[in-house]
């Protein structure tokens, strides 16, 4: 039995749904403002204070002791490079095991998918904080957290791009009697190459940003210097570090963009 609803009534129902959704949103907003005691006046009156702080304490950047930043910048870069390399290798293996069209067994796929999505949904700074507890303050927990997070992130996006590949070439090789390994090598990998490179380069950009703030939780890199100078009220040093960070990130983005243009 199908109920015949005239277009007129359908439209009225649609309108009513819209109104209810709007009312709910407005209610949620009002409650939130009340709950956090958001004070617009305080915010606006804070702006001059902030500007004052920015121009008298923060700026100009302190260019003294430039060579003291060299080591942390290098650390940060190395974190990102090593992190990207290792997590792309590990992520690739996991991706093949968990992509629907290449998983050797459905059970493997489901188990890996569960683990990967759990790890990936814990923010990497939380991983870094936990690993600092285990390994102590220093560079290792930073690198490990990039690895853990990056591997799972890449496994997921690699697996998705493997699943999106067209199945026709795979079918042809299967029909000619090729083995699982041969199909992966000859049909999947060539088609997956563009996706692999673009996601890996993207991961590198994420890693550069991430490794810059790892220091905030004591996990090494240039972020450590930032936290230290903020803690010691050396604001002109802090602003110098931020300038270095911006230059570093822009340089890396420029570089990855060039690589992309070259190979894709």
């Amino acid at each position: 039995m199908s109920q015949v609803v005239t277009p007129h009534i359908q439209q009225r129902q649609k309108k009513a749904k819209h109104m209810v959704s709007l009312a709910l949103l407005a209610g949620a907003l009002a409650f939130s403002i009340w709950y956090v005691k958001f004070d617009l006046i305080e915010f606006i009156s804070g702006i001059p204070l902030f500007l004052n702080f920015l121009f008298t304490d923060f700026l100009p950047p302190n260019f003294a002791n430039m060579d003291s930043y060299l080591r942390p910048v290098l650390d940060t870069l190395i974190f990102a490079v090593v992190g990207t390399f290792i997590s792309s290798a590990l992520g690739l293996v996991i991706a093949f095991l968990m992509a629907r069209n290449t998983a050797p067994h459905p059970a493997v796929r489901i188990v890996l998918r569960g683990i990967v999505s759990f790890v990936r949904n814990v923010p990497f700074l939380v991983w870094a904080s936990l690993l600092v507890v285990i390994f102590g303050v220093g560079a290792m927990p930073g690198l490990f957290s990039l690895l853990v997070f990056g591997t799972c992130f890449l496994a997921r996006v690699y697996a998705e791009s493997i699943e999106e590949l067209d199945k026709e070439a795979t079918e042809a090789l299967e029909a000619s009697g090729a083995t699982y390994g041969q199909i992966i090598k000859h049909a999947i990998i060539p088609q997956f190459m563009p996706g692999y490179f673009s996601w890996t380069l993207f991961m590198f950009e994420i890693n550069i940003r991430a490794s810059a703030i790892l220091g905030l939780v004591g996990a090494g890199g240039i972020g450590s210097n930032l936290k230290q100078s903020l803690d010691l009220f050396q604001y002109s040093r802090a602003s110098m570090i931020i300038v270095i960070l911006i230059v570093l990130i822009l340089a890396v983005e420029f570089l990855t963009q060039r690589i992309r243009e070259r190979i894709l």
Binding site: A169, L173, S176, G177, G181, Q182, H186, P190, Q191
Partner: peptide, 29 residues
């Protein structure tokens, strides 16, 4: 056609031999 689009014409034709090769020799072309 079901070709591997990003591989060469020659490679696509050679894929016809994979079924007769040892699994590993096939993987490494």
């Amino acid at each position: 056609y079901n070709l591997v689009n990003r591989s060469s014409v020659l490679e696509n034709v050679l894929h016809g031999r994979l079924g007769y090769m040892s699994p590993l020799a096939g993987v490494f072309s």
